[in-house]
Design a protein around this nucleic acid. Structure first.
Lengths: 150, 150
DNA sequence: TATTGTTATACTCTATAACTATA
DNA sequence: TATAGTTATAGAGTATAACAATA
């Protein structure tokens, strides 16, 4: 049966980019969470800590903006990380409405250890893609994100 | 020990596969939902209808298994699709506990139209990847999923 | 006893609106 | 007036447990 470009065949789920993105993300996140349990944090926590460690954001609102979520979503995450002793909030001296968010000494250690584990999980799952496969995958995903205006 | 942006252990968010997968998925899903609003269904609805159209599953439980979700999650989705007149439940004759799920005539039309739109969105977002880029991306995601045991 | 679909319920992640304290 | 953080609340999407009908 001839298939024209404009003739939508019935695709299998694993031919659909949306399905593949969703399940690849879920699988990677689950593996990462299992691994990071040893450090007492989740993949989501590590994402927040990474933004702080990279110096990409200082206030809660800036962290939220970098991660593409609402500022209200940061409150509970930072509450938990502060309770765990890995981040600290201190009021900004220049603008007392803002909290400056920093990793504690223990938080820096936790971050580096967890980031190392996280990278190992990524390498395990992208190992079948060949030597440059992981970087080509990242480049493709960045291009897709760019094309979507994100 | 200060962690700076130049610290190789501190990655930018868009170097992290998990971040890229999550945001690429969100961006594609948002675009798809906007486009499919014209057909009165969501990207999730289309995913369920695709499994039915492909004959990959007949009962509610089989659809759930193909999509990797719990069977209880299918109830509300199918309620909505049935109310919209695009799918029909009928009791199986061989096993009266099971519902056989089928697309209605209107549902087949809706599916084909929506799948055409969905493919267009995918093509728009993967166009920067070059002629074979979309297929290489699919292959990479399938390999990652396979490596994760999914 | 086991299974299919269903309901009730809960948990996570997300968002909007309104409050507070500052600016 | 406007902004940063917070709280209350609600909406998806997901799951577990228990139930009725059927196997």
């Amino acid at each position: 049966m001839a298939t024209r470009p404009s003739d939508p065949a019935v695709r299998a789920p694993d031919e659909v980019v949306g399905y593949l993105l969703k399940h690849a993300h879920l699988a990677l996140e689950e593996r990462t969470n299992t691994t990071l349990a040893a450090d007492g944090i989740t993949a989501r926590d590590l994402g927040v800590m990474r933004v702080i460690a990279a110096g990409a954001a200082r206030s809660q609102q800036e962290i939220a903006a970098v991660l593409g979520v609402d500022r209200t979503s940061m409150v509970a995450v930072l509450d938990a990380l502060e309770a765990a002793g890995v981040v600290a909030r201190r009021p900004s001296e220049r603008d007392r409405r803002r909290n400056v968010i920093e990793l504690t000494d223990a938080g820096r250690e936790t971050f580096l250890r967890a980031e190392r584990r996280s990278i190992e999980v990524e390498e395990q799952l992208t190992e079948p893609l060949g030597p440059d496969g992981a970087q080509r995958l990242r480049a493709a995903l960045r291009a897709l994100l760019e094309a979507a205006g994100g």
